[in-house]
Amino acid sequence: MSLKTIPLLLIIGGLVWLGAEYAENRKRPSRLTVPTEAELSTVSGKAINARVIERKSKKNVLASRFTELDIKGAEGIVTVRVGEPNSERVLTGLSGETVTAKFDPKDEKAVFSLSTPTRQLINYRDTAAYKHKLVEANSSGYTVGWIVVALGVAGLWISRKLQ
């Protein structure tokens, strides 16, 4: 392997990393935003049905797992998604109960707050804090890509100076 091979691989790898980050952000731009409570949509009504959804990749590997909850309100049946950091256990025994859900319509109707008249099942503050941490972790992807590209360019420059 020559001195130029590793820097070229770093440059190509960094550019692929940046391209993947860009594609993911274009596909789901709402994944890097935390909506305020005022930006959330609200639905109230009877909880009808809850079901666990498991999405698998092409290689039959679990890609995501969440729970869908159907709420029959004045607008008809609205299906919302309960996912991380909340588990499907919060929905146990809700069938037929009156619930109020606040969800993000831009992010696959992800629930940020869920309550019954007597108790709070999912708290907006906890869900928003979890998503905020997730946003911070994901936002470093561009930084890593640019660092790898810079290391490749520096390595290429050093290998040229050594020859």
Rank of each mutant, 00 (worst) to 15 (best):
K72L: 13
G73F: 06
L156I: 00
L62A: 03
S57H: 02
S139D: 13
G45V: 03
R119E: 11
S57Y: 02
N138G: 15
R160H: 13
V153Y: 05
Y22G: 03
V43H: 02
V61K: 14
T100A: 04
I147L: 12
T36R: 14
T67I: 05
V99W: 07
V80K: 06
S159H: 09
S2G: 11
R89S: 13
T33H: 12
A50Q: 15
E88P: 04
K46T: 12
L15Q: 05
E54T: 10
Y130I: 00
K72T: 05
I147Q: 02
V16F: 13
K27Y: 12
T33G: 05
R125N: 10
E75F: 07
R89Q: 11
I158A: 12
S113D: 08
W146L: 12
V135M: 07
R81G: 02
L134M: 14
T42V: 15
L10M: 15
T79I: 01
M1T: 00
K56H: 08
R28Y: 14
T67S: 15
S57A: 08
T42Q: 11
S2C: 01
S87D: 07
Y142R: 11
S41W: 10
I77E: 10
E108C: 03
R160M: 12
R125Q: 14
T33D: 11
L69S: 04
E68P: 05
E136P: 00
L162P: 03
T42H: 01
D107S: 14
I53L: 03
T42L: 06
D104Y: 08
R81I: 07
Y124M: 02
K46V: 10
L32W: 04
N138P: 10
Y22M: 06
G14R: 09
V80F: 07
L15N: 05
K72N: 12
L91F: 11
S140H: 15
E88K: 08
S159W: 11
P7G: 02
I71R: 03
L91I: 09
D104F: 09
K72E: 14
Y22W: 12
K56P: 01
E84V: 12
T36E: 11
Y130M: 02
Q120C: 04
V144K: 07
